[in-house]
Measured scan of single mutants.
Amino acid sequence: HNGKLCKLKGIAPLQLGKCNITGWLLGNPECDSLLPARSWSYIVETPNSENGACYPGDLIDYEELREQLSSVSSLERFEIFPKESSWPNHTFNGVTVSCSHRGKSSFYRNLLWLTKKGDSYPKLTNSYVNNKGKEVLVLWGVHHPSSSDEQQSLYSNGNAYVSVASSNYNRRFTPEIAARPKVRDQHGRMNYYWTLLEPGDTIIFEATGNLIAPWYAFALSRGFESGIITSNASMHECNTKCQTPQGAINSNLPFQNIHPVTIGECPKYVRSTKLRMVTGLRNIPSIQYRGLFGAIAGFIEGGWTGMIDGWYGYHHQNEQGSGYAADQKSTQNAINGITNKVNSVIEKMNTQFTAVGKEFNNLEKRMENLNKKVDDGFLDIWTYNAELLVLLENERTLDFHDLNVKNLYEKVKSQLKNNAKEIGNGCFEFYHKCDNECMESVRNGTYDYPKYSEESKLNREKIDGVKLESMGVYQILAIYSTVASSLVLLVSLGAISFWMCSNGSLQCRICI
């Protein structure tokens, strides 16, 4: 991952900044910058967002509201009850120091605090018919004063009620008058409520006091790749198909172990950190130390980045220098085999997901714990399936590479015959000098055995068991695999060879 928040398929997220979902939807004055928000790819909250409900109280069923919003990608904020005409018999300019803005008392931008007009609070009834052709999110509140005197001074009615009804919602609220500790300079409380109004449905408000009335509502448009994440990451000019709280993932790998919460087309989250597919040879310690064997393909974004291909070729060293050249036929066979294998694994496992966190309130801790156990169970199954699949494929890959290298080895052996000696570690020792032209003939299969047989015969008789390297004779190393990324691999195959001279070296080696 890149540690950044990015656009998702070209669409920017909605960053709530210092506000949370509650503050944004109710219209906390400190969240005025969010009022123009219309569309987004996903919503970003920060872990310690401080601006929620400015007048103390709870947004009821907040967790369910977050779940609903996680599939919303755009909205239209509109005046559901026009301020100047909807409440002619009531005062609608209630403000509070708890919702101060720029040093002055204020109130929510989407709600109206209705109080008595003169000395009376006549029963009010108002309704709205949803003609938007889509779901409408309606929010309101109920004020709970701290004393009967406060109730009387604001609403005149000691036994007030609030009723809200639609086809799918029907509740009646009565204020709970009680002494409470002071929070944000208030002994009173406000509880906030919401409902989704279906197209064509009607919502009716009736009250004799204590109503925090809707002013603006939201017509919602769903987008199934949307979601809500909690993150401290910063926004950058970048684009992605998959976003996590820790950063964007741009990967076609089937798995990731970065974060379980994802938005967009994302690899499946697994616990494993070692889900690797081999593309090189079986481990040979001396070669492995030099980083030549054991190439791997990573299938977990965050564990290993991208696929690494092994390729086969020849390396030689003689009086004229040293050089490398790919054996294109065996390399292409290996590439085709690995590509098919990788595609097979991805096809089997690479279903892209959006995974969002589930919200539970403080009273639902047991449910949250149960949900976590269920999620953990599914996660263990996914991890096991992934590891088992790759384990089985790896064994076949190792066998496949062994065969490829063996074929190259036999190709060289059949040409050199007794003009060189096998020394048991995949290397041959020449009994004759071999210049670049000679080396090329070994690589392309045109090695002239009779041409060098007499010199080889004489050297075999002279050496008589002495280690060949100390006599200045020449080696050919018969097994060799270097490691390159897919891009470098293609470039390498396009070149005939490249040279690395070893000044004054008397050794001649050709490596497979």
Rank of each mutant, 00 (worst) to 15 (best):
G280P: 04
I300Y: 03
L389I: 13
I263N: 03
C266I: 10
H259A: 15
A420H: 02
L379C: 08
G472K: 06
N362Y: 12
H401M: 11
A326S: 14
K406Q: 08
P254E: 05
V412P: 07
S486M: 07
N371V: 05
F255P: 04
G357M: 04
M307F: 02
R282N: 05
N283L: 04
S470P: 13
I476S: 11
E440Q: 02
H401T: 15
V390Y: 03
N407I: 03
A484H: 06
E429P: 01
L389C: 03
W382H: 11
L416I: 15
K462M: 13
L275H: 02
F255E: 10
L416T: 09
V278Q: 11
Q317T: 13
I476R: 05
Q246T: 14
I249H: 09
C438F: 09
T244D: 01
S453V: 12
E387S: 14
E364F: 08
F360I: 05
L489R: 00
E422I: 14
E387V: 04
E368H: 09
Q507R: 10
G426T: 06
I496K: 00
T482A: 13
V374A: 07
E429G: 10
G445T: 11
G494L: 00
G494W: 00
H316K: 02
G303A: 07
L468I: 14
L477W: 06
K274G: 05
Q317E: 14
V442G: 14
G323R: 08
W311Y: 14
E364L: 06
S441L: 08
A495S: 09
Y289T: 12
Q246E: 06
V356N: 06
G303R: 05
L458E: 08
I263T: 01
D376C: 04
E393N: 14
L389S: 00
L487W: 13
H236N: 08
E469V: 12
F360L: 06
T351P: 11
E347I: 10
G264H: 04
T351W: 05
A386C: 09
K451W: 02
I335L: 14
S322H: 11
P260N: 00
N394F: 02
R282T: 07
V270Q: 01
V261D: 14
S286K: 02
